[in-house]
Design a protein around this nucleic acid. Structure first.
Length: 114
DNA sequence: TTGCTGACCGACG
DNA sequence: CCGTCGGCCAGCA
């Protein structure tokens, strides 16, 4: 049995597992997928996510600085910001306040018990 | 098949 | 502080 899920599918899988009110970083996902250093692939996968039929909470994925780098790619201008605020996350200056507090690490949440 | 792209990250000046 | 560059590598024309 071979898992033919592409790199994209793996990314989508993890992103969908992100609970509301939490955010993660591209690098964290990349690292969890084993392609650390290739965080661009994660972002690239997000870009292709709009081609997917499934809904992907890409707004929960930010860069390592907690900055909404991909906000520009969403429909609206500050849609990403509003989506995060809707989940209880405070955004200021396109940055996630308490980023470390709401940070969701797949390797920790999925691989290890809290 | 090759070559370009990219929503990042880290380092350097 | 800000701009630039290299690396990383999967997907697409």
């Amino acid at each position: 049995m071979k898992e033919q899920e592409s790199f994209y599918d793996k990314v989508y899988r993890v992103v969908q597992l992100i609970p509301p009110g939490r955010v993660t970083s591209y690098g964290a996902i990349a690292e969890y997928l084993g392609t650390k250093g290739s965080a661009r692939m994660v972002g690239w996968a997000m870009n292709a996510s709009h081609t997917r039929v499934i809904n992907i909470p890409a707004h929960r994925v930010v860069n390592r600085n907690g900055i909404l780098t991909g906000k520009h790619h969403f429909r609206g201008k500050d849609l990403m910001k509003q989506l995060l605020e809707n989940e209880g996350i405070t955004i200021q200056d396109d940055r996630v306040l308490g980023f470390e507090e709401v940070f969701w690490e797949p390797a920790r949440e999925l691989g290890m018990k809290n």
